[in-house]
């Protein structure tokens, strides 16, 4: 029998390592590309002073030097400067201004997803709605975002700009690419399988509710699904933020990627890795708590030693 603490432990270790591994990999990949990094960012045929820039951006002494300098500064809250997007601008300011918008967007979009999961766990969403949910789930974020962007322009005078964009974006993210329908069908498939187990029937015969019996067993799977859904929302947020012009991390990453601004891409990606790590940590905690809950001896149970 597998030890219950292995999975939560592996997730915890992954969560601790991820924010470090992602920037290391990015740095190594930058050096693995043909040509030296400074020439990639500032081609000598297009711009002068490549060597001076390489020295200023710590690109002149290899990947380890670059990474240690960047990581040391990042640990102190200084994420460096933009190389090309807004040359010289502080990335810390750009990133910390963007984080609240992205968190608000994802938080609002998570509401319908969570609602779908809860309704499915309570088994109140009728299966006749499945074809409708399936069709709803096929709608890509970009199409809905385009519609929302047009609506935002048309109703700008009535609803204002940023707040409307945030709510519209959240609605798009919460529905598109199967976010809501996936939450309903995913949760239902997990809970339906558990409802068919014999122990659930026995619990019901004892006068207990189905949900109270299945909840400890489905919690780890649901935690995994919810983490995947939040990651999915974070992925979709890039598209929604750019189309609806929300100044979030996704928009920042897109703008930086377009101009190959590694000085911005590296910290933004690391922030995304930190969010992912936090989600992993929460999942590990939920899994661990559920395992302890299941293994906790219920009161009133007497061993049959006789």
């Amino acid at each position: 029998m597998k030890r219950w603490w292995v999975r939560p432990l592996v997730r915890t270790i992954s969560a601790l390592v991820l924010p470090m591994v992602v920037p290391v990999l990015l740095t190594l990949l930058l050096w693995a590309l043909p040509g030296d990094p400074a020439s990639i960012v500032c081609p000598p045929e297009n711009c002068t002073g490549t060597e001076a820039l390489a020295e200023r951006w710590n690109l002149d002494q290899g990947p380890m030097h670059f990474f240690t300098e960047w990581a040391t500064a990042a640990l102190g809250g200084e994420l460096g400067n933009s190389w090309r997007m807004q040359t010289g601008a502080s990335v810390s300011t750009l990133v910390f201004d963007s984080i609240p918008h992205t968190l608000a967007l994802i938080g609002l979009a998570f509401i319908p997803t969570l609602l779908g999961s809860v309704l499915a766990a309570l088994d109140v969403v009728h299966r006749r709605l499945d074809p409708l949910l399936y069709l709803l789930g096929l709608l890509p974020a970009v199409i809905l975002a385009v519609m929302a962007a047009a609506w935002k322009v048309l109703t700008y005078s009535e609803f204002g700009g940023e707040t409307a964009a945030l709510f519209l974006g959240a609605a798009v993210l919460g529905i598109a690419d199967g976010a809501f329908s996936g939450a309903v069908t995913g949760t239902r498939s997990v809970s339906a399988a558990e409802r068919q187990q014999r122990y659930t029937g026995v619990g019901v015969l004892r006068g207990e509710t189905e949900l109270a019996n299945i909840l400890p067993n489905i919690t780890p799977a649901l935690a995994g699904q919810l983490r995947a859904r939040i990651l999915h929302l974070m992925s979709g947020a890039v598209v929604v933020e750019v189309v609806l012009k929300i100044d979030g991390l996704g928009d920042l990453l897109w703008q930086a990627a377009l101009v190959q601004d590694f000085g911005v891409v590296l910290p933004v990606t690391t922030i995304f890795a930190c969010f992912s790590a936090a989600l992993l940590l929460v999942q590990a905690l939920v899994e661990g708590a559920a395992a302890v809950w299941v293994r906790w001896s219920p009161s009133g149970v007497v061993g049959s030693s006789a």
């Binding site: 990015l26 974070m234 890039v238 990453l253 990627a257 990606t269 995304f272």
Partner: peptide, 13 residues
């Protein structure tokens, strides 16, 4: 572990 679009943008970059 990472959002897919973030990975795609990094590859594109």
């Amino acid at each position: 572990a990472m959002p897919r679009m973030v990975v795609i943008l990094i590859v594109a970059l």
